[in-house]
């Protein structure tokens, strides 16, 4: 859908799994969800986090694929592996910095979120972002996010030396320019 972007705000997630159930019910998925919701540390917290494909500008999954099975469309959406090409080697599963691709062992095929191509191409929002009752997942125009949210969107992630820019945005506190997740990112070395 033109003019719409995908935003994830894990802080707003209530762990209800409406997204997981709705993803499974999407016409093309036949009961298999392409999204996960997990407790971060249930013993110590109620915090949950949804994980969908971030749709990287330079997708690591595609870069490491020896069979050239993973394609990114002009719309920036990174697709599931192409069935005739995928050799089920698991490279993408291991390499994705966000831990998204799943190997469907029975099908010998990597499958992941394709941002509901079948829905967005006919003017519907992705299933998960439509049903999410807590704004943890949203598919809306950027102006709306700028106007209504207290957090700011970011799509630049630092994994060690790898900078990853994504189509999907993560909502972060207003003063955080990029999300760094590795201690390495905070180290100081005299001669790197």
């Amino acid at each position: 859908m033109f003019g719409y972007e995908f935003y994830i705000d894990p802080e707003r997630c209530i762990g209800c799994q409406a997204c997981v159930n709705a993803c499974a019910e999407c016409d093309t998925h036949r009961g298999v969800p392409m999204i996960t919701v997990d407790f971060l540390d249930r013993r110590n917290s109620i915090a949950t986090v949804p994980a969908i494909c971030m749709h990287c500008d330079d997708p690591t999954c595609a870069e490491v694929c020896p069979a050239d099975a993973i394609k990114k469309g002009e719309d920036g959406v990174v697709q599931s592996a192409l069935k005739p090409r995928c050799i089920a080697c698991n490279n993408c599963v291991l390499a994705c910095p966000f831990g998204i691709p799943k190997m469907m062992t029975k099908l010998e095929l990597m499958m992941k979120c394709d941002m509901c191509y079948d829905r967005t191409s006919v003017g519907k929002r992705p299933m998960c972002a439509t049903v999410c009752p807590s704004q943890a997942l949203a598919y809306v125009p950027p102006e709306l996010i700028a106007r209504e949210r207290r957090e700011k969107p970011s799509n630049v992630f630092q994994f060690g030396n790898q900078t990853v820019t994504t189509k999907v945005f993560m909502m972060v506190p207003p003063d955080v320019p990029a999300v760094a997740v590795d201690v390495v990112d905070y180290l100081w070395e005299e001669n790197p």
């Binding site: 209800c16 409406a18 929002r125 009752p133």
Partner: peptide, 22 residues
Amino acid sequence: VGFEPWEEFPFNQGMLCPKGVR
């Protein structure tokens, strides 16, 4: 045989919990 969100209804605008989805 299935469901589809109803985004025009003002209270929930297509939102559902897992019970609604299933």
